[in-house]
């Protein structure tokens, strides 16, 4: 059973896998490289390879911005679901740094957060289990309109109505 949700559907893996060493990174076809290893990985000739960045709650957003190039995916791995910083980071990536690749939530986030995460610019969700992945399409759109401008809707409600 899939636990990845992409384009509002539970899907089987799209090939990206988390790695924890340079060796694993070079062995994998589509590695998600921890931010702390990205510079070293590039110096070791990985620059030409397709890779994504794995951002943990210990990482620095400034370092992420410095490391940003053409990566097709950035994964924010939640240590605690209550850590709301990733909501801001994703919005800044979309709205201030024109990042257009996939922004993925992983780790300890709740399906109930997916609606807000999506509005902040997240586009895929690597859930904790299959049941949560199955739940998301049904609950994400319950609240269907919003007052604020966000990463999905560039205009606030007062400019749209």
């Amino acid at each position: 059973m899939p636990k990845l949700v992409k384009n509002n559907q539970a899907v089987e893996s799209d090939g990206w896998i988390e790695v924890d060493s340079l060796e694993a990174a070079s062995a994998a076809l589509q590695p998600l490289i921890p931010l702390s290893l990205v510079t070293e990985a590039r110096n070791n000739g990985l620059a030409d390879k397709q890779y994504g960045i794995l951002f943990s709650d210990q990482d620095s957003f400034e370092v992420l911005l410095e490391s940003l190039s053409e990566q097709p995916v950035i994964v924010f791995k939640f240590g605690k679901f209550a850590d709301g910083r990733f909501f801001t980071f994703a919005r800044e990536l979309r709205e201030q740094h024109a990042y257009s690749g996939d922004i993925r939530a992983a780790g300890d986030f709740m399906p109930d957060q997916v609606a807000f995460l999506s509005r902040c610019g997240f586009t895929s969700f690597d859930c904790r289990n299959e049941a949560e992945a199955a739940l998301i399409p049904g609950i994400k759109g319950i609240v269907s309109n919003a007052y604020q401008a966000d990463a999905q809707q560039p205009e606030p409600l007062f400019r749209r109505k």
């Binding site: 679901f81 209550a82 850590d83 709301g84 909501f87 801001t88 919005r91 957060q113 609606a115 807000f116 995460l117 509005r119 902040c120 609240v143 919003a146 007052y147 604020q148 966000d150 606030p156 409600l157 007062f158």
Partner: peptide
């Protein structure tokens, strides 16, 4: 009130 209601970015503040 309208701006802050269900603001997607600020539901999990410190």
């Amino acid at each position: 009130r309208q701006w802050s209601t269900l603001h997607p970015e600020f539901a999990f503040l410190p």
